[in-house]
C-alpha cells in the first residue's frame, strides 16, 4: 500500500494506492492520525489508485472518521472506482460520507 499526504489550503489530501488489507490498514490509520492530531479539519481521501479494500480497511476508515468527527472536522472521499466503489456501496459507507469524483471537487 502506498500513502502520500499533500497539504492544501483547504485541507489535507491523502492518496492511497495498492491494497488496503489487514496488514496495511494500521499504517493508513497511523498516517491519518498524524494528520488529525496536527489539527486538520478537512481530510480528503483519494482512493483512485486503490485496487482492493478489505473489511479491516473499512474499519480503519471508520475509526479515522470517528477521530476526525470528535475534533469537529470532516472526512471526504474521492476517486471511488471498481471494487472499492462496490464495497463502499454495498457496505453503506457511501451513505455515511460525502463522496466526490475528484479531489478538487471534494475540497
Amino acid at each position: 500500500m502506498e500513502i502520500t499526504i499533500e497539504k492544501r489550503d483547504a485541507g489535507t489530501l491523502v492518496r492511497v494506492g495498492g491494497r488496503m488489507d489487514a496488514v496495511a490498514a494500521p499504517d493508513f490509520e497511523k498516517e491519518c492520525a498524524g494528520v488529525v492530531e496536527s489539527g486538520e479539519k478537512l481530510v480528503v481521501v483519494d482512493l483512485a489508485q486503490l485496487e482492493y479494500i478489505s473489511s479491516a480497511g473499512l474499519r480503519s476508515i471508520l475509526a479515522t472518521a470517528k477521530k476526525i468527527k470528535a475534533t469537529g472536522g470532516a472526512m471526504k472521499f474521492s476517486g471511488l472506482a471498481g471494487m472499492v466503489e462496490e464495497v463502499f456501496q454495498v457496505s453503506g459507507l457511501g451513505t455515511l460520507f460525502e463522496v466526490a469524483a475528484t479531489p478538487d471537487e471534494a475540497f
Binding site: 473499512l58 471508520l62 456501496q89 454495498v90 457496505s91 453503506g92 459507507l93 457511501g94 451513505t95 455515511l96
Partner: peptide, 11 residues
C-alpha cells in the same frame, strides 16, 4: 437487489 444500507456497529 442490494439495499446498500450501512454495516452494523458503526453508527
Amino acid at each position: 437487489p442490494p439495499l446498500n444500507e450501512l454495516v452494523a456497529g458503526v453508527m
